[in-house]
């Protein structure tokens, strides 16, 4: 079955959506991601949507759900790379993605994830200099 690959990078999960997603594929991604967050004990999820042509209400809702679910599982979600045309259209459509963090690109998204990693957790790796 068709699946969107989820990459692991340290305590973060990386998803880059490169295909024109149909609704079932989006639902599968949502399920896979929550499974992986628990399995990998991930602290952050980064979703790159820079090659997505549109974000309609269904995809918008999926992004919101992923953010809420991962927050419940102690992981932050950042959506990165939204194209201007997509953003303009979403505003017109009435979608605001409340509760979802956004960043311009993967690099800035990673910065946000690093910043939000909770302090005081027993971690073996050294904190980045802020």
């Amino acid at each position: 079955m068709e699946k969107i690959p989820i990459l692991k990078m340290g305590r973060f999960l990386l998803v880059s959506i490169q295909v024109d997603m149909h609704d079932r594929l989006a639902m599968t991604l949502q399920e896979d991601l929550t499974d992986r967050i628990v399995k990998e004990n991930a602290r952050g999820v980064l979703i790159d949507i820079s090659s997505m042509e549109i974000v309609d209400s269904f995809i918008g809702r999926m992004l919101g759900s992923i953010a809420s679910m991962s927050r419940m599982l102690n992981a932050e979600t950042v959506v990165v790379g939204m194209q201007p045309a997509v953003a303009i259209t979403m505003v017109e459509l009435g979608l605001s993605l409340s509760g979802v963090r956004t960043a311009l690109d993967v690099e800035k998204g990673m910065e946000i994830l690093h910043r939000f990693r909770q302090p005081g957790e027993e971690e073996t790796d050294i904190d980045d200099q802020a």
């Binding site: 201007p84 979403m90 017109e92 605001s96 956004t102």
Partner: peptide, 12 residues
């Protein structure tokens, strides 16, 4: 307002 909202969606 729409411009500001769109920029925010993009992460700015």
């Amino acid at each position: 307002i729409k411009t500001v909202s769109a920029a925010r969606l993009m992460g700015a």
